[in-house]
């Protein structure tokens, strides 16, 4: 089914951040920010196109001065609003404001089962404790929470503990994110990223454990189709550009946060034109098998895996995902 508009818009209101993470895709990006009125106009455009979900990322969304006002306007316009935060600034007062603004849920990034791993990865001493404190504050304010954990070399053996701790702090779902090779993630890839075989071992273990895990587990990696895992998204391969779109702080649209290709600006070009006419999105929606994907029995399920990772490492949308373990 071809959608008339994205179902989800991942929206970076600001690239400003109080952390300096080893894998960050956006730390070196500088973009001007829209005014509050302009962001209200963006919300109106999204609601008008019947976008269902808006997820604020970044950057750290809580550093954007009008976060609650934009959220309130979006939720009152019928959009289901969520956010991914590092949690540093979510004290009891901020948690109450999140509830009042209408956040449907808030995701907190936690990448280690102990402070040394998380704080080292995030380059911010004390951040592990404050991330768990944020979860508890949000639970106290009645805001459903999730946890986002980026799997990398130093936490892959302890991911079950990350999940258990997240559940203890009230998270309903833990997203076990695959490693993206964008920005610093590309610079530090050799040190942080797993080998294709290690990804396979991790996914096999996590899928086998899923039903016993203390909270729901979610995966967003198209490569997982290689293990016979059916996509919950009703589309094959990457969902970027098929179900979702990313907005930058100045209103520029990119297929996803990890693909730095500007498709147009939502305020000057309009969402409909970007979504329907972009040549980049057309290519992403109509990938062609190349290299080892040619003739592969599961290509129809994974469509070459993560397009962002293929592009970052080879310069081609159609190249095989470097995480793919198939020979």
């Amino acid at each position: 089914m071809k959608l008339s508009a994205p179902l989800t818009v991942n929206w970076t209101l600001s690239y400003a951040c109080n952390f300096s993470c080893r894998h960050c895709y956006s730390r070196e990006i500088e973009k001007s920010e829209l005014s509050l009125e302009e962001n209200f106009a963006v919300v109106d455009a999204l609601a008008g196109a019947r976008v269902a979900f808006v997820n604020f990322g970044g950057g750290e969304p809580l550093l954007y001065p009008h976060l609650y006002a934009v959220t309130k306007h979006a939720s009152e316009s019928g959009l289901k609003v969520t956010m991914n935060s590092n949690g540093w600034l979510i004290d009891e007062e901020a948690a109450a404001k999140c509830a009042e603004a209408g956040f449907r849920s808030v995701g907190i990034s936690i990448d280690g089962a102990e402070a040394a791993t998380h704080d080292g990865f995030r380059d911010r001493p004390g951040s592990y404790a404050r991330a768990h404190r944020a979860l508890k504050n949000l639970c106290g304010a009645g805001v459903p929470t999730t946890v986002s954990a980026v799997i990398f070399k130093r936490n892959v053996k302890s991911y079950r503990e990350i999940v258990s701790q997240a559940a203890d702090s009230g998270a309903g779902t833990v997203y076990l994110h695959n490693f993206k090779c964008s920005g610093r993630g590309m610079e530090n890839r050799e040190e942080l990223d797993l080998s294709p075989q290690e990804w396979r071992d991790f996914y096999e273990d996590a899928l086998a454990w899923r039903d016993e895990a203390p909270c729901a587990l979610a995966f967003d990696d198209p490569v997982i189709a290689l293990l016979g895992e059916e996509s919950s998204a009703a589309v094959k391969g990457s969902t970027c550009g098929k179900l979702s779109l990313h907005l930058e702080p100045d209103g520029d649209a990119t297929p996803c946060g990890f693909i730095p290709l500007t498709l147009g600006n939502i305020l000057t070009d309009g969402l409909e034109k970007i979504w329907n006419d972009s040549e980049v999105l057309h290519q992403m929606r109509n990938k062609e098998a190349t290299g080892k994907c040619v003739g592969c029995s599961v290509y129809g399920e994974c469509l070459g895996g993560c397009t962002a990772r293929a592009l970052a490492t080879t310069g081609s949308f159609n190249a095989p995902d470097p995480h793919c373990w198939k020979e």
Binding site: M1, L3, L7, A52, T173, A216, A218, S232, A233, A234, L243
Partner: peptide, 15 residues
């Protein structure tokens, strides 16, 4: 049999 209404329920999409 082609889908034209999407329902998102518990993280899964149904057509």
């Amino acid at each position: 049999e082609r889908g034209w209404v999407i329902i998102i329920d518990k993280g899964s999409m149904h057509q």
